[in-house]
Design a protein around this nucleic acid. Structure first.
Lengths: 204, 204
DNA sequence: ACCGCCGGATGACAAATGTCATGCGCACGG
DNA sequence: CCGTGCGCATGACATTTGTCATCCGGCGGT
């Protein structure tokens, strides 16, 4: 018995998505039964195709692969989840795990690890890059509060305090306070650096 | 006769690179004869494998795919060049063309266009997304001077004026002047926005 | 009941940033 | 040879940003 493993591929760049499908297609125990380009289409597609393993990119329109993973995990806990990402940000790993992911792969790992990971998670194993796991543990949890994160995210595009205040329905002073505490927590010297560091760590 | 088309693949993320190789491998008139992960390894690999078409990602360590394209075009003008990128930035298209590229593809185009493009450039055609071409023409050329671009690029990580001045061997005032003119040319209100816009346009 | 933390706000102050006028030397095109 | 634009610099100025002290109400622990 042991029919093929049914895989869903979620990735917004079609060229990459179809290339990954071609790659997995070379394995004869794996079959890509569905492809989606948006995070918010994942759950429905998983349901519709009786998927064994969902392969989720993080950066996607609609919602992130992490958010999608959380939804699938809540609704269909038996589906295995592999999170795939361009950026090996420790904070991403942390939130992926909290969302119920079974594997976390970075796109600059060898291609062979992809099919490997699919088989392993189906066998109940977890697949995590040990270096990244160490980094995630070493760096500790996100020190920012919800509000601080929100304000920092909004400030990322270069908006001024006045714009931020208007957009978030806060006073300018409050915006500055939040940014100030964020800057201190991240041990940097201005909002631009704060944004950069928070991004790098996957805290944004 | 017409043996297979010899292709070189340059892309830093191995999973994507090997997936693209798998994709091209499905075409029986195309053969991936070499793969590199760095821009500065492209020229040697092209030489070593008698490549017909080089497929170059832009974002790579060593040097960008555009820079690599320029070098190959200079040294081996008969080799066809396909530039592949995640970001459809008009400025990228412009510089790719100036570097001698024959095709410009974005990764969220359908996968079928990849093999298509390889065949077309070999037949002497140019392959460019018409929407992007229009955007590139509409937006005009990069208005920033060399120095302005340099300072803006250095400012992108959130460095302060003092740090920029030290790094670039300029006075703080001069740094501020350059950033100020850049801000005006880009019609934005602060350096952070200037960085963002310049990035989006591919001017940075 | 009390402490601590979060969200939210104000006001005062210092430092960084953005603007503008102005000046100099150099290169390049007409 | 003259104008223009660039690179580089100063100084003065207004605005924005970052810091700090202080305040309030609410909520979760102990």
């Amino acid at each position: 018995m042991s029919s093929t493993i049914k895989v869903l591929l979620a990735e917004d760049q079609s060229m990459v998505r179809e290339a990954l499908a071609a790659l997995l297609g070379l394995e004869d125990d794996i079959e890509v039964v569905a492809q989606v380009a948006r995070g918010d289409e994942v759950l429905a597609a998983v349901r519709a195709h009786d998927v064994d393993v969902a392969l989720l990119d993080i950066e996607m329109p609609g919602c992130t692969g992490i958010e999608a993973a959380a939804r699938v995990h809540r609704e269909l806990p038996s589906v295995k989840l592999v999170v795939l990402t361009t950026f090996g940000r420790p904070g991403y790993l942390r939130s992926a795990m909290e969302a119920g992911a079974d594997a976390f792969l970075v796109k600059d790992a060898p291609a062979a690890q992809l099919a490997e990971a699919v088989r392993k998670v189906l066998a109940g194993e977890r697949v995590i890059d040990p270096t990244l796991a160490a980094a995630a543990l070493a760096e500790g949890a996100n020190p920012l509060t919800d509000r601080e994160r929100e304000v920092l995210r909004a400030a990322a595009d270069g908006s001024t305090n006045a714009e931020l205040a208007a957009a978030l329905h806060l006073s300018q002073g409050t915006v500055r306070n939040y940014l100030s505490t964020a800057i201190q927590k991240l041990a940097v010297r201005n909002r631009a650096e704060a944004v950069r560091i928070a991004r790098e760590k996957g805290w944004l």
